[in-house]
C-alpha cells in the first residue's frame, strides 16, 4: 500500500512516516506544492495525506486537479484550520476524510485503513484476520462463522484496533476517538474500560484468540502477526 504524505512540517511528516512505515505502508513524502504535484502526476497512491496550507500553493488546488483527472487515490485532508467551510469544500471536491491538527497517529492510521478499505473494495468489503471476519458494509463481525453482536462503539473500537495492528494505543487516543470533542471535558477516561472489556469478552467468548493486550496499565495493543 502506497501512501503520499504532503506535509511541509518536517517533524510532523517524520512522525507520520515513522508510525505508518511500521504498518506495512510504503510512505513517500512531498514537502511543497510542486513536489506533491510531480509525484501525483507520475505515481498512483492508495492514500494521499494532504495538508491544505503548503508552500507554493493551496492544497485545495491539488484536490481540484485530482478530481479533474479522475484519479482514484484516496485523500485525507489534514488541516490546521479546522474550518467547517474547508471541510465541506474538501469533501465536495472528492476528499474521503478530514482530520484536524493536532491528532493522534493512531487516529490517522485508523482513518487511512478505512479509506483504503473503502476505495479498494467497492461492493463487498471484508477484513479477515485469523478466525475473525469483519464485514465493513453490513457492520457485522463473525468469529469462525458465527455472528457476534457488537454495539456501535464496540464495532468502532474493533476497527480502530485493526487499523493500528501491533501498535500501542494510549488511553487518551481511544477516549478521543470514542468521544470526539468531548474527550477532554471528561474527568477521567474510565468509560473506555467498559467498552474494551465488553469487546474483549464478546470476542473471546465466541472463540476468538485474545488479540487485545493491555500494556503498562494504560495502553492497548492489537497483536496479530
Amino acid at each position: 500500500m502506497k501512501i503520499l504524505i504532503i506535509e511541509d512540517e518536517p517533524e510532523l511528516a517524520k512522525g507520520m512516516v515513522g508510525y505508518l512505515a511500521g504498518q506495512s505502508y510504503l510512505c513517500e513524502l512531498a514537502t511543497d506544492y510542486h513536489q506533491a504535484w510531480e509525484k501525483i502526476g507520475t505515481h498512483h497512491y492508495d492514500c494521499i495525506l494532504l495538508d491544505l496550507m503548503l508552500p507554493g500553493g493551496n492544497g485545495m488546488k491539488i484536490l481540484d486537479q485530482l478530481k479533474a483527472q479522475n484519479k482514484e487515490d484516496g485523500v485525507i485532508i489534514i488541516s490546521a484550520k479546522n474550518a467547517l467551510e474547508d471541510k465541506i469544500r474538501g469533501l465536495e471536491l472528492g476528499a474521503d476524510d478530514y482530520l484536524a491538527k493536532p491528532f493522534h497517529l493512531s487516529e490517522l492510521s485508523a482513518r487511512i485503513f478505512s479509506v483504503i478499505r473503502r476505495k479498494n473494495f467497492a461492493n463487498s468489503n471484508f477484513i479477515q484476520q485469523g478466525e475473525l471476519k469483519v464485514d465493513l458494509l453490513a457492520k457485522t463481525v463473525e468469529v469462525a462463522g458465527s455472528v457476534v453482536t457488537l454495539t456501535k462503539k464496540e464495532f468502532d473500537l474493533l476497527l480502530f484496533f485493526m487499523g493500528n495492528k501491533n501498535k500501542v494505543i494510549s488511553k487518551s487516543a481511544l477516549a478521543e476517538h470514542l468521544s470526539g470533542d468531548l474527550a477532554d471535558m471528561l474527568d477521567n477516561h474510565d468509560f473506555i474500560y467498559a467498552h474494551i472489556k465488553n469487546l474483549k469478552k464478546k470476542l473471546t467468548e465466541a472463540g476468538s484468540v485474545n488479540y487485545l493486550k493491555t500494556l503498562y496499565g494504560n495502553g492497548y495493543k492489537w497483536q496479530y502477526e
Binding site: E9, E11, L12, G15, M16, G18, Y19, G22, A80, K81, N82, A100, K101, P102, F103, H104, L105, S106, K167, V168, I169, S170, A173, G219
Partner: peptide, 19 residues
C-alpha cells in the same frame, strides 16, 4: 492556527514514543 502544527508534532512524537 499557528499552534495547531506544533501541537500535532508533540502529539505525534508522544505516539511514537509509546511504540
Amino acid at each position: 492556527h499557528e499552534l495547531q502544527t506544533p501541537l500535532a508534532i508533540v502529539q505525534s512524537k508522544l505516539d511514537l514514543l509509546m511504540q
